[in-house]
Amino acid sequence: MNVHAPEFRYHTLVVTVENKSGVLARVAGLFARRAFNIESLAVAPTDDEGFSRITVVVDVESAPLDQVVKQLDKLVNVVEIRELHPGHSVERELMLVTVTAEPDLRDEIVEHLDRAGGKVLSLGIDRMMLSLVGPPSRVDEFEDLLRPYGILELQRTGRVALASLDDALD
């Protein structure tokens, strides 16, 4: 395994589960009990109200991907598991962040924000609330850029993903 290629350490699984109470606990419990590490996990209903979709990023240094998939598949409420291949999937993450921004620094911050493709959500006397949707790596970079200004509060969603369209205009 190439340590310089972190995308191979983390694999994204899209898990379709029955929309029943306790399903998230079963999935999370399985990861804990089998000592599988999760990098991020996001869950939401799908277009079909009987099912939810969990996007989970697993750290395959803790366990082989094959084991993670097979153990997950044994959960009765898990209906389907798809692995999204790095490079063949579209991944997005949302970040909300409140950053210290005295008036003289605001233009600079907004410049970073524009380049990253984010939005200003609200302004305070000495602070701004921003949002950014993007590939997780871009969200990481933007977070690093903001840090010197002073991050007051930050919340990221964890990634969600879909397979790329083979013939996409992407």
Binding site: S21, G22, A25, R26, G29, L30, R33, L75, V76
Partner: peptide
């Protein structure tokens, strides 16, 4: 009960 027995049953129901 279902929480406690989740990891030691093949499946459980409430």
């Amino acid at each position: 009960t279902t929480g406690i027995t989740q990891s030691i049953t093949k499946h459980n129901f409430l």
